[in-house]
């Protein structure tokens, strides 16, 4: 039991600890024709056409994700934790006119809000994957030793994969998706964490029910749970 003011206060402190300086975002142009693992790339006509992709620029992992998804020629929108301004100025007016598919890599709060707001416009979350992000300095400080990729390099590979999963999401799968709003509030569901502490994609599909082991203390104090997601029109 905690008072509402302490509840908000505690949450704000948590957010401040997770915050990292926002940096500029170099956006690569020119589409990548192949996935990193060499698997086949869907023709453009078969991919879900995304209106924009959001990213939380407080997180280095999200900025890398944005750079990677920018290379797929998807317009980007940056947020600082809170989605209110973007929702009010762009998404809500847009959604009132058209069911515009939107993707993102954010913490759970913006996804929680946008998922529920999207329901009113006939849209659903059709893709939801969890990742563990670490802070900028932690990523940058780890040297590349013993031939293993540095954490930054590993994160870039992860970002490329996460972006490819979004950019190449099949339109046909969005039509079939039936994501249940199983997750409830403030990212309460548990998530497995890689021993290396780098961002790890837990699932590659719509997560209808989220269970798993708890965030381990070994993940370090900087660990923050991020979600990559797609919201798209629901075809009944």
């Amino acid at each position: 039991m905690i008072s509402r003011r302490r509840f908000v206060q505690h949450a704000a402190v948590v957010a401040s600890l997770a915050a990292a300086p926002a940096g500029g975002l170099p956006v690569f142009c020119g589409a990548s024709a192949a996935t990193r693992d060499g698997s086949a790339v869907l023709p453009d006509a078969n991919r879900l056409k995304l209106y924009v992709a959001l990213f939380d620029r407080r997180f280095a992992a999200a900025r890398l994700f944005a750079r990677a998804i920018g290379s797929h020629a998807i317009p980007l929108r940056a947020i600082d934790a809170d989605v209110t301004d973007l929702w009010f100025s762009e998404l809500h007016p847009g959604w009132k006119l058209h069911s515009l598919p939107v993707a993102g890599l954010t913490t759970y709060g913006p996804l929680f809000c946008l998922e529920r707001l999207a329901w009113d416009h006939g849209m659903r979350v059709v893709h939801r994957t969890k990742h563990l992000a670490i802070r900028d300095d932690a990523i940058a400080a780890v040297p590349n030793t013993r031939g293993r990729p540095s954490k930054r390099a590993a994160t870039e590979l992860w970002a490329a994969d996460a972006a490819a999963a979004i950019a190449g999401f099949p339109r046909s799968r969005a039509r079939l998706a039936a994501a249940s709003p199983a997750e409830t509030a403030f990212a309460g569901a548990a998530v497995p964490v890689s021993a290396a502490g780098i961002p790890v994609a837990e699932t590659a599909a719509v997560s209808a029910s989220v269970t798993g082991e708890a965030l381990r203390p070994g993940a370090g104090p900087e660990g923050a749970l991020l979600y990559s997601w797609i919201i798209a029109p629901r075809v009944r």
């Binding site: 948590v14 809170d82 989605v83 759970y108 929680f112 509030a185 923050a224 749970l225």
Partner: peptide, 26 residues
């Protein structure tokens, strides 16, 4: 001015490893 900011500050993190699934107000 309406806001959704409250939802952005309770995210799971290393310092808040077990955020609740929600809350009931007493």
């Amino acid at each position: 001015i309406p806001t959704l900011n409250m939802f952005s500050i309770g995210a799971r993190s290393g310092t808040n490893p077990e955020p609740t699934h929600g809350h009931m107000w007493f």
